[in-house]
């Protein structure tokens, strides 16, 4: 029964993998998901910027999400994807190890990140979602892109 009722508190997430961990980003920010393509390195850019890619004629920055979250790097596989998200008019790609599904989660099942993880990475998270026996780490896309970081620094 409870699965059928729509509470209005639910959010839809695109679930993807980084190493063995499962992450989620709200579907409203996701523009599309692409296979890995050629990425041009941009000199003098922050280290978490993998480079730029060609998305149907426009040039798009690509973030190495693992580097951003201080996770160990891995070789790209057939499952590696680029999730293209749009935050405040900025389009950006994020490299992830695999995209697994789209799922719905009730907001009551989301815990604030500070209670679970500490350190720098906590800033990039907006919460931890509990989904049956799984834990989804919810990304704070704004922070990943560095939006509003100047505010934080001052």
């Amino acid at each position: 029964m409870s699965e059928l009722t729509y509470s209005g508190n639910e959010i839809q997430l695109v679930v993807f993998k980084l190493g063995r961990e499962e992450y989620g980003v709200t579907i409203l920010q996701v523009q599309e998901i692409k296979r890995i393509t050629e990425i041009t390195r941009v000199p003098h850019s922050p280290d978490y910027i993998k480079g730029v890619m060609n998305l149907r004629g426009s040039v798009l920055p690509v973030i190495d999400l693992k580097k951003r979250l201080n996770l160990p790097p891995e070789e790209y596989t057939d499952d590696t994807r680029i999730i293209i998200i749009k935050v405040e008019d900025i389009n950006v790609g994020m490299i992830v190890d695999a995209v697994s599904e789209v799922t719905t989660i009730d907001q009551n099942n989301i815990e604030p990140p500070q209670t679970v993880v500490g350190g720098i990475a906590a800033d990039y998270l907006s919460g931890i979602g509990k989904l049956e026996n799984r834990l989804l780490i919810l990304l704070n896309a704004d922070a990943i892109l560095g939006i509003g970081q100047e505010v934080k620094a001052s």
Binding site: P43, S45, L60, P61, I90, L145
Partner: peptide, 10 residues
């Protein structure tokens, strides 16, 4: 290259 990469040196 978009706002994110604006002002990259050189």
């Amino acid at each position: 290259m978009g706002k994110l990469l604006a002002g990259i040196k050189a």
